[in-house]
């Protein structure tokens, strides 16, 4: 598909490079979004006393003490390894499994389709706090408490409705003729799916994966109750080690860097694909 400059800009909004008010709005929004995070990142390099000094010191001698504490004393890197395993695996499974389901819902018409589709969505509606007890009991029965299998399975289930609902729309937008041509050429359904549909869907699937990865990486409530020392992920660890009766903001800063850093870097690299994938399917 070729994109001309005119496609991006609607005719009425003429391309204005030097529109100062647009930049003013964007700079403001940018600062509101970034400064809080930047400030907390800075506190990671402060001593505990410095984190409380107002007016803020912008220039100070960085200390790596907080990182030392959370890495050496609290073993945050182990939790990070757990987080990586759990987030990546649950993303892989939920996207793989959900893709087929989304395809089926988009491509075929069968009785009860709308109901199934809505029922899938309802699985996202129970508040986490409400299902912790029954899920805990299931895990206990099957010996899944504090195991990777258990929490990965749960996150997969948790993300499926999102994956299905998101990808469904994109599948619907791929003309069905594309596949039929391949089928005419003698391919099996799977062959046609792999050769024709998947390449077209790749950007959207990537975008869905990124979303799911972020959500799994950030999940707190289930992780707190269902993981233990063998599988504990970062979010409950951050709360455990930075919030006691008081919050240690230097430790919080360091923990925030460790928990959000990798995923932020990741987003920097995949930003383009992310947005492209999201907009992809909507091309009619």
């Amino acid at each position: 598909m070729t994109e001309s400059k005119r496609v991006i800009v609607s005719p009425k909004s003429a391309p204005v490079e030097n529109n100062w008010w647009v930049h003013m709005i964007l700079v403001t929004v940018f600062m509101i979004a970034v400064i809080p995070v930047l400030w907390v990142v800075m506190t990671a390099f402060m001593t505990k006393t410095q984190t409380q000094v107002m007016p803020p010191e912008i220039f100070f001698k960085p200390s790596f003490n907080a990182f030392g504490v959370i890495v050496r004393q609290f073993g945050m890197l182990t939790f990070m390894a757990h987080s990586i395993i759990i987030a990546v695996a649950s993303t892989f499974f939920s996207v793989t499994i959900g893709t087929f389901c989304a395809y089926a819902l988009a491509r075929f018409s069968f009785p009860g389709k709308e109901d199934v589709s809505f029922w899938i969505l309802t699985n996202r509606m129970m508040p986490a706090v409400a299902v912790i007890l029954p899920i805990f009991m299931i895990f206990q029965t099957f010996g899944l408490l504090d195991t990777f299998v258990g929490i990965i399975f749960l996150y997969t289930a948790m993300q499926l409705p999102f994956v299905v609902w998101m990808l469904k729309g994109y599948f619907e937008d791929i003309p069905r003729e594309f596949e039929e041509v391949a089928l005419v050429d003698g391919d099996t359904w799977l062959g046609a799916f792999r050769k024709v549909v998947l390449p077209l869907m790749r950007p959207s699937i990537t975008a869905a994966s990124i979303f799911v990865l972020i959500l799994s990486w950030n999940e707190y409530a289930f992780a707190l109750f269902l993981t233990g020392t063998n599988t504990r992920t970062l979010p409950p660890s951050v709360v455990t080690f930075t919030v006691s009766t008081e919050v240690s903001f230097d430790l919080l800063g360091a923990a925030a860097v460790i928990i959000a850093g990798p995923i932020l870097l990741f987003v920097v690299f995949v930003q383009k694909q992310f947005v492209r994938g999201l907009s992809m399917g909507m091309v009619r």
Partner: peptide, 12 residues
């Protein structure tokens, strides 16, 4: 040892 934040210790 599995540590819990104080607010969630009793819950857990």
């Amino acid at each position: 040892i599995e540590f819990a934040p104080f607010d969630q210790t009793r819950e857990k």
